[in-house]
Nucleic acid binder design. Structure first.
Lengths: 158, 158
DNA sequence: CTAAATGCAAAATTTTTGCAGTCCC
DNA sequence: GGGACTGCAAAAATTTTGCATTTAG
């Protein structure tokens, strides 16, 4: 559990394909873009733009928040990162582009990835196939994580 | 197709159980609350707060936008309406509380409800059951609806 | 060298809040 | 009548934009 969890893909591999993708999309490989991408690829908590900015400021004191926003938007357009669907007002992001799903703790707002191959293999209802062309289907599970269950238990006992 | 699509539940039934729910939650049945709820219950397009406000202004010229926001937040807290997960910055809402899923057209942003009983009956992966307690699981399908496919086709031909 | 990207500041958008007056129960 | 709710206005929070300067290719 001490190692960074990144599926089968190492950070180095991600950086390499990121750089490759930027080159073929004619996106310049700036210091900011590399660092923003690296930070997001390293994160496992689906951070929002502000969180990323705060983290990056430690090593890049002049990085501006609007560059983070602009850069994430550019990345998302080019399918280098994904905006995560949430019910909260702040947008959150992830660098993991392979098919996966999310569990969200409604208490602490933590978002965790998970795989669900048997769902992925499932075909959608017939009327949906009529609707148009489908690019992806994803599951979001809502609930309360163990940690928060424990905390809420404590509160009750007070 | 000319009739309002509201599953098996008629608007009147929805209004009745809404009023009932407000009473038991000690929420006062104000004119604004009733109208906001009715407007949302009637809508099939998962409107955002501003859209609802714009529609309601026609018959309630003094209704303020902040009341719409406050009211929707209150309703959501009491599980009378649901905030819909989207990747866009504006929150969207629905009054339909029964288990269902969403197809979203990435082009026109239309959100459509659909049922998927066989998915609902599916049990989640084992590691997720370990994660905590689950309150619900929902599918979001992304793609392009027929209408937008047709439009994009036209554009190509120009 | 040149177009694209960045930082700064300012604006736009979306949502929330304080407070005085109004209305439901 | 009293506390909850609303409208107004103002603020907060989040995201976007214009422009001068810098940088990658």
């Amino acid at each position: 559990m001490s190692e960074k969890k990144r599926g089968n893909t190492s950070l180095q591999q991600m950086m390499e394909s990121f750089e490759e993708a930027c080159r073929s999309a004619d996106l310049k490989l700036t210091h900011q873009r590399l660092e923003i991408y690296r930070e997001l690829a390293t994160a496992t908590d689906h951070p929002c733009a502000e969180t990323l900015h705060r983290r990056l400021l430690k090593h890049m004191p002049t990085l501006s928040l609007d560059t983070v926003y602009r850069t994430l938007a550019t990345f998302a357009q080019h399918h280098l990162v994904k905006k995560v669907q949430t019910v909260d007002s702040q947008a959150r992001f992830e660098a993991e582009m392979s098919q996966h799903h999310h569990v969200i703790c409604d208490s602490c707002k933590e978002i965790m990835d998970f795989q669900w191959g048997s769902f992925d293999a499932f075909s959608v209802p017939g009327d949906i196939e009529q609707w148009g062309s489908i690019t992806n289907k994803n599951v979001t599970i809502h609930g309360t994580c163990r940690k928060c269950q424990a905390t809420q238990q404590e509160v009750k006992q007070t």
